[in-house]
């Protein structure tokens, strides 16, 4: 069963606990107060944001915390194990939505998915863009050759700048509805993120004196 984001929320449901009628969108049963299982919503719909690349980070935090404060299993320590388990799955869904919306990479991937495109950053995907491929090899070699912190820092600065550039480009591409472009930028962003991870590993290795 698939459900369009935000849609169908007016249809009545039966509460799992008291079987009372409730709307599908209700987090709690208004008859018995029991927390309801999470609905199959994507991250935008779960936190109540429109499906746009630009998001208000502070507002994401605010809504996430507000919802966790009501749904987290720690709020249900006196309830039945079943209700606690439901609260746990609610908290898991919220955490997943939060991580997706906060991260430009995951957010962009979700937007492409919403538009019916397969994610360019899934498993076993190789870089198709020849220019990016060249750049990737070049930077990797530089990183491997770097023996002091300063050299690693320089590459790190470049990666951070590219990261920002990709995010800006993603915003522009989604804004203009250019999904192919967005897809390419997303691949590039994924690559720079992975490199940033390697840069950190290299820096730690040098700092710990492992060369």
């Amino acid at each position: 069963m698939t459900e369009a984001a935000g849609g169908d929320s007016g249809a009545p449901h039966a509460c799992w606990s008291c079987h009372g009628p409730i709307t599908a969108a209700a987090l709690f049963c208004h008859v018995c107060g029991a927390v309801q299982p999470p609905r199959p919503l994507d991250a935008f719909a779960r936190l109540g944001f429109p499906g746009r690349f630009e998001v208000d980070a502070a507002e994401i935090d605010k809504r996430y915390r507000g919802l966790q404060q009501r749904l987290h299993p720690d709020r249900f320590t006196k309830r039945s194990p079943r209700e606690r388990a439901i609260a746990e799955s609610q908290a898991m869904s919220l955490n997943d939505a939060y991580e997706t919306l906060k991260d430009p990479l995951k957010r962009a991937a979700l937007l492409l998915e919403r538009a019916g495109r397969s994610s360019p950053i899934g498993e076993n995907r190789t870089i198709q863009d020849p220019a990016l491929l060249m750049e990737a090899m070049e930077v990797r070699e530089a990183l491997a050759a770097a023996t002091d912190l300063a050299a690693v820092e320089a590459i790190g600065k470049r990666a951070a700048a590219e990261d920002r550039r990709c995010i800006e480009a993603l915003g522009a591409a989604f804004g203009a509805g250019e999904l192919d472009k967005a897809s390419r930028q997303l691949t590039a962003l994924k690559y720079w993120r992975k490199l940033a991870e390697e840069i950190r590993g290299r820096r730690a290795a040098i700092a710990h004196g492992a060369g």
């Binding site: 299993p73 746990e88 799955s89 908290a91 898991m92 955490n95 997943d96 991580e99």
Partner: peptide
């Protein structure tokens, strides 16, 4: 650093 509780799947 993923917030918990968390459930993630991979194929």
């Amino acid at each position: 650093n993923s917030p918990i509780p968390v459930a993630m799947a991979q194929e």
